[in-house]
Amino acid sequence: MSFLKKLFGGTGGGGESAQAAEPVDYKGFAIYPEPIKEGGVFRVSARIEKNIDGELRSQRLVRADTVNVKDDAMQAGVTKSKQVIDEQGDRLFDGPNA
């Protein structure tokens, strides 16, 4: 049951990943580093948001990368998000997962 709670947003053991981080502003985008605790490591993850034409758009970035320290995972999430923003810009919010 704990797996399902983690999968659908419950706090069963994964509460650390639910802590709100301060957003990092980058080129008009807001980057929220949200590492996911998996056992003894943290998966690199972040939420990228931008207000486009009065609508708040959001996209989640989840990487295969894992690190041992939460702060390192948060920094990596910001770094990877910046790379995606540089590559895709507003196109980040196009497509089926946007």
Rank of each mutant, 00 (worst) to 15 (best):
M1D: 13
M1S: 14
M1K: 07
S2A: 15
S2R: 12
F3T: 15
F3D: 13
L4N: 10
L4T: 08
L4V: 11
L4C: 10
K5G: 09
L7M: 11
G9K: 03
G10Q: 04
T11I: 07
G12M: 01
G12F: 01
G14D: 12
G15C: 03
S17E: 12
S17H: 02
A18W: 11
A18L: 14
A21Y: 07
E22Q: 12
D25E: 15
D25L: 15
Y26S: 08
Y26P: 04
Y26L: 03
G28E: 04
F29L: 12
F29Y: 10
A30M: 15
A30G: 04
A30F: 06
A30L: 14
Y32R: 08
Y32L: 14
P33I: 00
P35L: 02
I36E: 13
K37E: 14
K37W: 03
G40Y: 12
G40C: 05
V41F: 12
F42H: 09
R43Q: 12
V44N: 01
S45N: 06
S45A: 13
I48T: 06
I48N: 05
E49F: 04
E49R: 06
G54L: 04
E55K: 14
L56I: 02
R57F: 10
R57S: 07
R57M: 00
Q59H: 01
L61F: 05
L61N: 04
V62D: 14
V62G: 07
R63C: 15
R63K: 15
R63G: 10
T66E: 09
V67P: 08
N68Y: 08
N68M: 10
V69L: 14
V69G: 08
V69P: 06
V69E: 13
K70V: 08
K70Y: 12
K70W: 02
D71N: 09
D71G: 05
D72G: 05
M74I: 11
M74A: 14
M74F: 04
Q75A: 13
T79A: 14
T79V: 13
T79Q: 11
K80T: 15
S81P: 06
K82L: 03
K82T: 03
V84T: 12
E87V: 13
D90P: 03
R91H: 11
R91D: 12
R91S: 15
R91T: 14
F93E: 03
G95L: 03
N97D: 10
A98V: 10
A98L: 10
A98P: 06
